[in-house]
Simulated scan of single mutants.
Amino acid sequence: MPRALLFDLHHTLTKTCESQGGLFRTVCSRFGIDLTRHSVHVLDKALSESLSSIHEYQLAHNVEYTWFPQPEDWLKADRELFRNLGYEDMSDTTLMSLRREYIHEFGNGWETLHEQAEPTLRELRRRGYVLGLCTRRGLDPRHLLQKWGVDDVFSVVEYSAVVGYQKPSPFTLLRAAEALGLNPRLCAYVGNAVDADVAAAVRAEMVPVLLTWAGPESDTVVPEGTLVLNEIRDLLKHF
């Protein structure tokens, strides 16, 4: 039986009112850039593809696992991103200002804590479980945990959006287990994505738990031994 439960954050404990593509379109509108002709799906895909140059930079410069790109580091990626969306010759100043605004919104107001999260986390703590957070993001999420009033329930917080360290690498999960002084096999990892969260848990030799409330995934792609739950509060039926 696990002694610790480690959690993903986005769409595991938090919810959003729009996708990253929707947020990007909203931010762009503040700069007079109308992206309404592009679907949110197209914008989500474009944002994802723009990360390739950031990943190349991370490897070329052997950055630390908590490294996060500043607006000037995004210039190459953002210029290509907007070129693919039909916008040429955007100034460096505009690109950096837009990226700075997007980073601020993404890191502060984009997501909120799911209503089932806090009562479930506190009950798990009451039952004696040690809790931790391991998330695939470049910004330290502790200010959000404090804002939501749940910073006290987590004994360890690990994060990384650097390729090679971020999930599905087990790096942050293993760091959390080490910080807690626990064998990884005494930990469960709770997330919402098979390719990132479940894969990282399996590689870390932790108990994988998949939450499907944000978007059910096919059972056929879930590795054997994965505990699949629909809602956050369902954790209390098993732990």
Rank of each mutant, 00 (worst) to 15 (best):
E158V: 09
N192S: 15
L85E: 09
G164M: 08
T16M: 11
F7T: 02
I33W: 02
F154S: 02
H61I: 01
S155C: 00
C28M: 06
T66M: 05
S39F: 05
K167S: 10
T16V: 13
A177D: 00
F171R: 03
T93A: 14
D140G: 07
R30F: 13
F239I: 06
W110V: 01
C28V: 06
N84Y: 07
R137D: 04
L180A: 06
H10W: 10
L9E: 00
D219K: 14
A179V: 01
E111C: 03
H10G: 14
P184Q: 09
M96P: 02
V150Q: 04
N183G: 03
P170E: 03
D219C: 10
E56A: 06
V162A: 11
S97H: 13
F7K: 05
R233C: 13
D140S: 09
G109Q: 10
R3V: 08
L173H: 04
F239W: 14
T93W: 12
R233M: 04
D44G: 07
L211T: 08
P2F: 09
V194C: 09
L43S: 09
L174A: 03
V42W: 01
V153Q: 01
V63E: 15
A46N: 00
V222R: 14
R137I: 13
L81N: 09
P69E: 09
E18L: 11
E111H: 12
H10P: 00
S39K: 05
P216S: 13
T94S: 08
R79N: 05
R137F: 11
V194E: 13
F82N: 08
R30E: 10
N62G: 07
S160H: 04
R125E: 03
L9T: 05
V150K: 08
L35V: 01
T120C: 06
A161S: 09
L6W: 00
R175V: 00
R37C: 03
R127S: 05
T14P: 05
L5V: 08
V130H: 05
V157H: 02
L133R: 11
Y165S: 10
P223A: 06
R79L: 13
G107Y: 03
A161N: 10
S160E: 08
L174C: 04
L235S: 01
H238Q: 11
V190D: 14
R100Y: 11
L133V: 14
L81A: 03
M96C: 14
V202F: 04
E217Q: 15
T36Q: 06
D219H: 15
K147E: 09
T94M: 15
D195Q: 13
V190H: 07
V130K: 14
K76H: 15
V40N: 08
D78P: 00
